[in-house]
Design a protein around this nucleic acid. Structure first.
Lengths: 201, 201
DNA sequence: TTGGTTGTTGAGCGATCATTCATAAACTTG
DNA sequence: CAAGTTTATGAATGATCGCTCAACAACCAA
């Protein structure tokens, strides 16, 4: 009986992610959103409720994608530490590619910094997402510890926070638009940090 | 002959820094600025030209203060590496203090991320400031190299970028609002990274 | 005092902000 | 086709955006 929607919800969300990733929450006007999604205001509000609602869904979508990327990446490595080291280098490499992504810095971190004193709901969401990522890293590191890759007395949550800080720093630095070589060096140097946590053999 | 200004330019700038640091560029409206500076729009525009101009001066002011803080800090240390390690720990400690500063994350980095795809002038300014800070670190590290603290073949610019990334990551992580203990651990872990660059003795 | 200069004020500018809703269009079912 | 239901549209909303400027206030030199 009803008229079916003419747009693709997932595709619209992907476009929203791209816009918000580039311009942030305050930097993206509804007019720009309408243009990016090729939707009229009525449809946007019927589908996502509000600008906040759309941003929230976009952020969740981005985080889910990032988590899937990490899982997929780690599946290719027997050694967890080696996988995490390669992950750091991969981030450095992808940030070096021009127009590989809408922006270099992480959307979650951008949201954390932008929303911390202006939008409690988005700030809280960014905090939750980052806490979940920290937990993912901690679980990976616990596996590494169980496999004897890193020392038995390693504080995995603590090391997970150090690792997450590395990624935050790497991608923030990438936003300075350094050369590809400089970014690769930085990725290598950060990967080397993990080396010192490995069990001596 | 003329009527002297009734406000204190430096004091007004300090208040602008505080507001922008908290809410960012797009998140600070002229209405909020008027209230924070206790100035009427006419006076603000006569003094700073525009919202962009005010932000630009505030950012420069913040950066200068940061540079002075670094110099003052380093003056208290014979060992440059030890000074930089203590600097990382000091940042962690001050970020842990509630209401020690308007925000934890660095205003320059916040500006870099917010302005990169919305405001070329501010983006460029943030880039310049960060490049200058990188150079300061590189010069400090060159001195450390000359004094034999770190290996003679050390690439000081490269290490300076790693150091700057640590600070970016540390202060971004601080915006997640971790416990004081967790932040101190993170500062310690980042200081320990520099340990591995020291010359063995 | 007075004249000249500069600083301060705040109402109000056009533009844009996020959002709404009456209307029109599109589709399925009977 | 016609009836019924849902979606799409975009002009229009009040609020707020950054900003201007004519009028006024405050000061100094003469």
């Amino acid at each position: 009986m009803p008229r079916p929607p003419s747009y693709d919800r997932e595709a619209a969300l992907a476009k929203a992610v791209s816009l918000f990733w580039q311009k942030g929450y305050h930097g993206s006007s509804m007019k720009q959103i309408e243009q990016a999604l090729d939707m009229r205001p009525g449809s946007i509000y019927a589908t996502f409720g509000s600008k906040d609602g759309l941003f929230s869904e976009a952020l969740a979508n981005y985080a889910q994608q990032g988590g899937a990327d990490l899982s997929e990446h780690m599946a290719g490595y027997d050694s967890i530490v080696a996988g995490l080291q390669a992950y750091l280098r991969e981030i450095a490499g992808s940030c070096a590619d021009t127009d590989c992504a809408p922006a270099r810095a992480c959307l979650i971190v951008k949201t954390l910094l932008e929303a911390s004193n202006t939008n409690p709901a988005l700030y809280s969401q960014a905090q939750s997402v980052l806490a979940a990522i920290e937990t993912s890293f901690a679980e990976l590191l616990e596996s590494a510890r169980n496999q004897g890759e890193i020392a038995a007395q390693t504080d995995c949550r603590r090391l997970a926070r150090l690792l997450q800080s590395q990624i935050m720093g790497l991608r923030a630095m990438a936003e300075r638009n350094p050369s590809a070589a400089e970014l690769e060096q930085l990725g290598d140097d950060m990967a080397a940090i993990l080396e010192s946590y490995k069990v001596r053999n």
